[in-house]
């Protein structure tokens, strides 16, 4: 479904991502793990067109999307849950979710999806009219994921959903991610918490200094001694 070939990202003269190639198949959850600064977020941003790639191509559902306008990516079916959540602080919870459905016109379906999100995250239902800026970090993460799902994407890009959250909250969020994946959503997940990511996903790529150094089934990677030494702290 997603084909990334020779993608490069540069900030000024510094190469953050050096020609990486990988793919995500329909219906699978793929984890992209690596240390801080390995180029994971840059990769995701380049796919979602928040950043311009310095080279290489991204194909989505067979279509080249490397030059699509950023605000059209969601129409193509790619939704990004950005690092740091990025909720609209002075919009209510309900309005934030409504923003997720900005590109959709089917009012009845949107209302259904809203109820579905409240089903995933009952906490959001409780805080429906509250301004998003007043939510806790975990609640904001829930909101960000719910908002992305409101667009009914074909591919969900998750950037560090566990970052800065209490373990209990991380658990809750990953529960929902698993449910969504089980419902057939294609997901590309970026995580520093490699163990959690590999436990949740089917396949994984390991990034180091802007390059993919290792790839394989998640279960295999979990058992790979190099991965265990470098990312699982063993």
């Amino acid at each position: 479904m997603l084909e990334v070939t020779g993608l490069r990202v540069a900030y000024g003269g510094i190469q953050a991502v050096r020609s990486i190639t990988f793919h995500v198949n329909e219906g699978e959850m793929v984890a992209l793990i690596g240390a801080n600064g390995a180029g994971k977020t840059s990769t995701l941003k380049a796919i979602a067109r928040v950043l311009d790639a310095a080279g290489g191509d991204v194909h989505f559902c067979g279509e080249k999307v490397t030059l699509v306008a950023p605000h059209d990516m969601i129409r193509k079916g790619i939704a990004l849950v950005p690092e740091g959540r990025g909720v609209f602080p002075r919009l209510s919870v309900a309005e934030n979710l409504a923003m997720g459905a900005f590109v959709r016109d089917d009012k009845a379906e949107i209302a259904n999806d809203l109820e579905r999100m409240y089903g995933y995250f009952p906490r959001l239902k409780e805080r429906e009219t509250q301004l998003a800026g007043t939510l806790s970090g975990g609640e904001q993460q829930m909101l960000a994921i719910g908002r992305a799902l409101m667009s009914r994407p074909k591919l969900l890009l998750l950037d560090e959903p566990s970052m800065g959250l209490a373990p209990l909250m991380v658990q809750k969020i990953f529960e929902v991610i698993r449910i969504v994946a089980a419902e057939g959503m294609t997901i590309l997940l970026i995580e520093q918490n490699a163990k959690l990511a590999l436990q949740t996903s089917q396949r994984g790529y390991v990034m180091e200094s802007g390059e993919i150094t290792l790839t394989g089934e998640s279960a295999q990677l979990l058992n790979d001694p190099k991965v265990r030494a470098a990312y699982l702290g063993e």
């Binding site: 979602a48 605000h71 129409r75 950005p82 990025g86 609209f88 923003m99 900005f102 590109v103």
Partner: peptide
């Protein structure tokens, strides 16, 4: 709503299709 969203976080508003 799009205006308010843009004023609060233009990059994310763009991600939402604005």
């Amino acid at each position: 709503m799009a205006m308010r969203a843009t004023s609060q976080n233009p990059a994310v508003a763009s991600l939402m299709g604005v």
